[in-house]
Computed example of a mutant assay.
Amino acid sequence: DTSEIEQEIKEIKRAERKAALESGEINVWAQFNDSVILGDSRAVGFEVFDCVDDSRVFADAGATIRKIPEYIDGIKAVNPSSIILCFGINDLSIGLWPTCEEYITEYDQMIQKLQEALPDATVYVNSIIPATDPAFQKSEKWREIPDWNEQLKAHFEETGVPFIDITEEVEEHKDLYDVDGIHMRKEFYLYWGNAIIMEVTENE
């Protein structure tokens, strides 16, 4: 069965690529030279911590997916092959979408706008990094993030939009949350960047 062999080879290559990224043999940030990152204050960290060139980070504190159309002209100027969407923390707390189903409906619309403006680029959706104590003092809605992630993942896998699930990375590095329980420390971005590039590489 050639399909089984192909899958085995794919898994071997994936493991080798992951090991090379984790060891530093491959410079993960050099792999972002044809990508852009969109998102909120968590995504801003890619720029603030000098991970990705600021011309490739379109992010603002407090941003939700409704900010995406404002970034389109700037993204077109960069003309990337990959667009990474890192939203969610504000989307839940602001309450514009009472349910995940309503959120997904608008998320699809925003992705469609990107695809129409940049038909040659692949749009990726990153899972929402969960909040942790003491963040829930600001918003109890953040307790719903794991459930929303499950629904988002199921939906985008069904529609063919690549979904970057970093749940495992967050679980493994809970010590890298900032004191607010919302943002992540600089050290976490290496693990996040690796997860993004692993997914992007598989879709090339």
Rank of each mutant, 00 (worst) to 15 (best):
F49Y: 15
N27S: 14
G88T: 09
Y177S: 08
G88M: 03
Q151C: 08
L92W: 09
T99I: 01
H183N: 11
D133C: 03
A20C: 05
E144A: 13
N79A: 14
Q7C: 09
E11S: 11
V48I: 09
D165T: 06
R14H: 10
A30N: 14
V161R: 06
G62E: 08
S41I: 03
A195T: 13
Y191A: 10
A195D: 12
N203Q: 13
P134W: 00
F87I: 07
V123W: 03
E187M: 08
C100N: 15
Y189M: 05
S35A: 15
Y189A: 06
I75P: 12
K138R: 06
C100A: 14
S55W: 00
V123Y: 05
V44P: 00
P80Y: 01
I196V: 15
E4N: 11
V48F: 10
H155C: 15
Y177F: 13
K153G: 12
L114N: 07
E6T: 12
E25W: 00
G181L: 02
D108W: 02
L118F: 01
E158K: 15
P98F: 00
I72K: 03
L85A: 12
E171R: 07
I84L: 15
W29M: 02
E101A: 06
A61R: 07
I83R: 00
E199V: 15
G160A: 10
M198K: 08
G95K: 01
C86L: 10
T201C: 01
D54P: 09
A59W: 00
V36F: 03
I12P: 02
D53T: 06
S55Q: 08
L114T: 07
L38F: 10
G181M: 06
R42C: 01
F188G: 11
I164D: 13
L85W: 13
D175I: 10
Y177N: 10
M110D: 13
T122A: 02
L38C: 10
Q151M: 15
V200G: 10
G160H: 09
E101L: 00
W142L: 04
A154G: 10
Q137P: 00
P119Y: 00
E144Q: 12
I94T: 09
V179M: 13
T2N: 14
E140H: 02
K13V: 03
K186T: 14
F136G: 12
I129A: 05
I9T: 11
V123A: 04
D40L: 06
G39V: 03
D178K: 08
Y103N: 05
H155F: 15
K18T: 04
I37T: 06
I128T: 08
E150T: 12
V48S: 10
T99L: 01
N149D: 12
N126T: 14
T105E: 07
P119W: 00
L21A: 04
K138W: 05
A154E: 13
L152N: 08
K13Q: 11
Y177Q: 08
N79S: 15
I72W: 09
G193Y: 03
V161E: 11
G181F: 05
I65N: 04
E22I: 11
P80N: 03
D165L: 02
P146C: 07
E168S: 14
N203C: 03
P146S: 09
D180A: 06
R185G: 13
D108Q: 05
P119D: 01
D120V: 02
N203P: 04
Y191D: 09
P146G: 11
Y71E: 14
D178W: 06
D178G: 05
H173Y: 10
G88C: 04
V57H: 00
A30W: 02
